[in-house]
């Protein structure tokens, strides 16, 4: 294509610049735009009003409960974090488990601290002879004398032996025993 042809086409097309928009087009366009802007503004305000109402309704519905739950969670979180921080501090004592010495004893009882002198040497050794005597009623050797080892013994009459603990709670003999007692008879052996 040659340059003059290009110019000819351009000059021909340039004649379209004489084309004009209709009379009063600008005013009409601006009027239409104002109407449109007003409509858009109205629809926006209606939308925002509906949204505001919805938000208000939702706040009223869930606000207090939600706030309470959130506050509770927040307090719980703060306390948990604080406890973890304290327990992780070096040399810190356990918080939950209290010392044995802090536990109040019933009246008449006294806490005797264990004798730990030469504890390692005594570890695994047998009990002193007097202690083993106190445990004699429960010794296993009683089994070989015809009892179970868990019989109740009368502290005054050492010959009396009650029914074994393991049997006293059985349903049958216990009921019979109670009936016998009502009748004033001696307990069945």
């Amino acid at each position: 294509m040659t340059e003059p042809d290009d110019n000819q086409i351009s000059r021909l097309l340039a004649l379209k610049r004489y084309e004009r928009m209709p009379e009063g087009f600008e005013d009409q366009l601006i009027h239409q735009l104002h109407l449109r802007q007003r409509t858009e503004l109205m629809s926006q305000s209606v939308r925002s009003m509906v949204w505001e109402r919805l938000q208000e309704y939702w706040d009223r519905l869930t606000g207090p409960r939600l706030a309470l739950a959130v506050a509770g969670m927040a307090v719980l979180a703060v306390v948990s974090v604080r406890l973890i921080q304290i327990s992780l501090r070096p040399g810190a004592e356990p918080i939950i488990a209290s010392k044995l010495s802090d536990v109040p004893l019933p009246p008449g009882f006294e806490m005797i601290p264990p004798d730990l002198t030469n504890a390692s040497a005594n570890f695994g050794s047998t009990l002193p002879p007097d202690e083993s005597l106190k445990l004699s009623p429960l010794l296993l050797s009683k089994h070989f004398e015809g009892s179970y080892g868990d019989e109740l013994r009368d502290s005054f009459n050492t010959e009396f032996v009650g029914p074994p603990v393991s049997r006293r709670f059985e349903v049958g003999p216990f009921i019979k025993f109670a009936e016998d007692e009502e009748r004033g008879s001696a307990p069945a052996k």
């Binding site: 021909l12 004649l15 004489y18 084309e19 004009r20 928009m21 209709p22």
Partner: peptide, 17 residues
């Protein structure tokens, strides 16, 4: 078609065409 400005009548290119 749009309205055309009357000035086109005096445009040399229009006269030429």
């Amino acid at each position: 078609l749009d309205d055309v400005d009357s000035g086109i009548q005096n445009d040399p290119d229009f006269i030429n065409v």
